[in-house]
Each structure stands twice: as structure tokens, then as C-alpha cells.
Design a protein around this nucleic acid. Structure first.
Lengths: 193, 193
DNA sequence: CGTCTATTTGAATGTACTCAAAAGCGGTGG
DNA sequence: CCACCGCTTTTGAGTACATTCAAATAGACG
């Protein structure tokens, strides 16, 4: 098991003794998820938060017409999950699946709670993660409410250049909130690159 | 100064000794804000997070066409601010103003950081607040991406019945992401009450 | 009252969607 | 290695939801 990406990420915000680090690592679980396989489905109670170490994961909701709406993409180094379900330990509204063969490191919610009590520094760590997530959501909401589709697309490309390359357009369309047909037309008609 | 609403709110998530409570209270600042007055404007560096004790506050962004897009309403008992600016201490993108004469309790970002170090329980408190904020943003994003305007309105009414009553329709329209004219038509034409 | 802002209403317009069908692309098995 | 199958992308025509602009009406506040 190679937890170096996650540990590196943790050390950016807090420092741990060797002992604390071992304890933290002992709570980690690893799982490989093949393309198109689910980590969570709607109605599941999420086991806990997941940190992507390989591949690309994604969370999305399904509307009553059967359309997918991407809430988040998670390349390596990012966390993913249905926050509602994780926090409240109730059935969630999101699907979480792998866009490419992926590998995640995850913790049980109960272990996470234990971790908070045993090593309060992790309260800080996840407090900071939460702050960053809120900032990201705030930005996305601003874009969604105030920019036309083509600028939302431009912003997506600026923000996630690597994803823009590696994702099917269909997924990007779902993220920025348009149909795949419309995104295709946008990209091909006005300024044909 | 009456901090009871805020303290009550804090005690829902953590317990404090008398001494800790006094220290916390010593960091608090109070400010009255009259209707239409600003707490923060775009480009300001936010002093720190604000907790509403009276009135209704709101945060919004301004797009290049001069239209407002409400990010959040904050009646008493809610926190408000430009999270990006608070966390990074850089110029923000949001305006924060009072919809009605209001009163807030706020902390300097620097005092908040001190508080985290001096009383780590506050790491937990704000970690939990952050979790809840993320859940709220996740829900709003799902609605924005997957529901038609009329259902976003219905959901708003369900979620904030008290606000639906007390806010000008214009504000609600801005929150759900439609023009005031369109909201008016929606409400008057199909099912006339 | 009078002014300023919010709401309503209408007509014209535009952005994005639906449905349908063709073309492209990638992976898989023979 | 090629052929086929399924999925993604493209393209087009018709449509719908929501906006813009304009003007009239109604409310709120001093």
C-alpha cells in the first residue's frame, strides 16, 4: 500500500509524530474501482470520505428524467463522496463512480470520528479541507448563476486543464450544466478553433 | 451585548468552561448594519466571519451586466461572509449587505486563528459548520443543475418558509436564478394561487 | 402626498433543449 | 489485425423556457 500521496497532502496542513502517522495509516482502507463501477449509489449510506490516488472519480445526481448532473470530478489528490450521506450517515442523493480505472483510500465514518477525538489535529485538517471545499462551491455557484454556457466552459478549461483533455465532452457538458449536443455546437460553430 | 444566540449555537456542538467562554466572548465584536448598508464590498478583504443576531443579511455577486446573484441569505442564527476572502485574506468577489436593519457578531480572522490554537474545540465547531455549509451548497447545486425554475422556487419556499414571506420577490428571483419578471409570471400565470 | 422601488403584463427575442439521424471512435473478439 | 458493436460526437430542424425591453400599476417610505 502506498499512502504517500495522502500523507503528503496531510502534511501540507498539519504535522504528525511517527506514532500518530502510524495510527492514522492503520485506519485507512484501499480499494480499486474499475471504470464505470460504483463506489456509492443513490440511497446508499456512504461508508466515509474517499481520497483518490489513481484514475478519475466523479459524483453526480440523477434527475427525474434520467439525466446525470456532475457535482464533482476527483483526479488523484482530491477527496470525493456524498457529503450529506457521510456527515449524517443517512441515504444519499449522489452516485459516485469511476470514470477511469481508479484507486482510492478511504476511512470509515466511525474511524474518522475516533480520529478526531484521538488526534485533534485532524479536526484542523478537515476544517481546512472544508473551507476549501466551500470556496470551490461558492465559485462554482457564482459561475453557474452569472455566466453564459460558453464562459462556464472557458472557466472549466482554465480551472481543470488536465481534466478538459482527458474527459469525454459529455462529462464536461454535464458539469457545466448543458446538454452534450449543445456543448458540441458551441465548440464547433462560433470560433472553430 | 447579548451573545446568547451565538453561545447557544456554539453549545450545540461543543462545551466550554466558564473561562473558555469568557475568552471567546472577549474576541467578539458587535456591529449594527442598517438596511442596504454593506458589511463587505467586492474587492474588500473580509475582516472575518459574521454571525447574524438580528435582521437579514445577504451575500451576492455582481456580473458584468450589473445583475446581482444572491449566494446566501442569513437570518438570525446564520453565519455569513465571503468565504474566499475570509480564508485567504485576499480581495473577495462578493458583496455582503443588510436586507433589513441587522445586527451581527463578528471575529477578526486573526482572532479566529488564535482561538483555534488556544481552544482546539473551536476547530471542531467550525469543522462541523463547514460540513453543514458543504451539504447546503451540494443541495443547492443539485437543484440549480437539475430542476426547472418553478421547482427551484418551490424548494426555496419549503427550505426557507420564513424568508419567502419576508423577502421581496426580486431577492428570491435572484437566489433561484431567474429574472424578477419571470418569477412574477410564473407565480401569476399557471396556478394562480 | 410624492418619490422611489418593486411588481405586473405584454411582445419580441435568444439561449439552450429535444428529437432524430449520421458520422466518428474505441474497444473487443474472432 | 480487422470487423463489428456500442458509445460519443456532430449536425440539423423545430421547440420551449427564460430573457430583454418597455410601460403601466402598485407598494413602501419619508
Amino acid at each position: 500500500m502506498d499512502f504517500s500521496l495522502l500523507l503528503e497532502h496531510v502534511f501540507k496542513h498539519i504535522t504528525l509524530t511517527q506514532e500518530e502517522q502510524s495510527y492514522f495509516v492503520s485506519l485507512l482502507n484501499v480499494r480499486k474501482i474499475k471504470k464505470k463501477q460504483y463506489l456509492d449509489q443513490e440511497g446508499d449510506i456512504s461508508k466515509g470520505p474517499a481520497f483518490v490516488t489513481r484514475g478519475i472519480m466523479r459524483s453526480y445526481s440523477l434527475d427525474k428524467n434520467g439525466f446525470e448532473h456532475v457535482i464533482q470530478f476527483a483526479p488523484p489528490g482530491w477527496w470525493i463522496g456524498d457529503m450529506y450521506s457521510i456527515v449524517k450517515q443517512k441515504p444519499g442523493r449522489l452516485y459516485v463512480d469511476a470514470i477511469e480505472d481508479s484507486e482510492i483510500v478511504w476511512l470509515w465514518k466511525s474511524d474518522l470520528d475516533r480520529l478526531y477525538s484521538d488526534i485533534p489535529k485532524f479536526e484542523r485538517f478537515f476544517r481546512i479541507l472544508g473551507e476549501n471545499a466551500i470556496v470551490a462551491f461558492e465559485n462554482r455557484l457564482i459561475s453557474t448563476l452569472s455566466l453564459p454556457a460558453i464562459e462556464r466552459y472557458a472557466q472549466f478549461c482554465r480551472l481543470y486543464p488536465s481534466l478538459t483533455e482527458s474527459l469525454p465532452q459529455k462529462q464536461v457538458a454535464s458539469y457545466i450544466g448543458v446538454t452534450p449536443e449543445f456543448l458540441s455546437k458551441m465548440l464547433n460553430s462560433p470560433a472553430p478553433k
